[in-house]
């Protein structure tokens, strides 16, 4: 399916074609959100939210863009908005409650919520930006150029970050593997 052409039809008012784009991308987006650290219910909420925004912002889709990159740009903003709303209540004293924990406690929380393989635990323990790069490359089938454009970084920076992310993933994975064996 030519997603760009389909999205241009949606942009021109033929909203029914959005269903094709939804069917094609629903699972990928849902799993993207799960791998970024959300539970199932929130993952579904954000898929719905993402497509609501696709509909609301359809006139801003440009013919030069790839639909997938544009969709994931919206998806990244959606999940960032979600975490942003969670993250800002801990700065003040003495009114502050528990400080927002680093990724380790997020990993603890994920451990309680779902059955995870060793890899998913290791992935979940990474900082969000490292996790995202691996998810986009390994699972969302973005190539290097697309990821660089999506994250607004140059290609060399991406290559460095990818290596760092994989090294960190390997470290976490081996530590967890050592614990369970």
């Amino acid at each position: 399916m030519d997603e760009k052409a389909t999205m241009l039809k949606v942009k021109n008012g033929q909203l029914g074609y959005l269903a094709e784009l939804f069917e094609n991308n629903r699972n990928g987006l849902f799993n993207f959100f799960l791998r970024m650290g959300l539970n199932r219910a929130l993952g579904e909420d954000l898929v719905q939210e993402t497509f609501m925004r696709v509909l609301a912002y359809r006139t801003s889709f440009k013919a030069q863009s790839s639909f997938k990159a544009w969709l994931y740009r919206i998806a990244r903003n959606t999940v960032a908005d979600h975490f942003r709303k969670l993250g800002n209540q801990d700065i003040h004293e003495p009114y502050c409650e528990e400080r927002i924990q680093d990724n380790q406690s997020l990993a603890d929380k994920l451990e309680k919520e779902s059955q995870q393989t060793l890899f998913e635990k290791a992935l979940a323990s990474l900082p969000a930006d490292q996790r995202e790069i691996i998810i986009l490359s390994r699972f969302q089938q973005f190539n290097y150029a697309e990821i660089a454009e999506l994250l607004n970084i140059n290609l060399n920076t991406l290559k460095t970050r990818m290596r760092t992310a994989i090294a960190q993933l390997k470290l976490q994975y081996n530590q967890l593997n050592g614990k369970t064996s």
Binding site: L18, F22, N27, F30, L55, I166, L169
Partner: peptide, 29 residues
Amino acid sequence: FIETIWQSQSLADDHQPSPALDARFYQML
């Protein structure tokens, strides 16, 4: 390590969203 992660089929298994997601989307549409 990269070969293991990238080639492992089980890691690529996707979770399925519930039918409720479809219902919500189509209602919105």
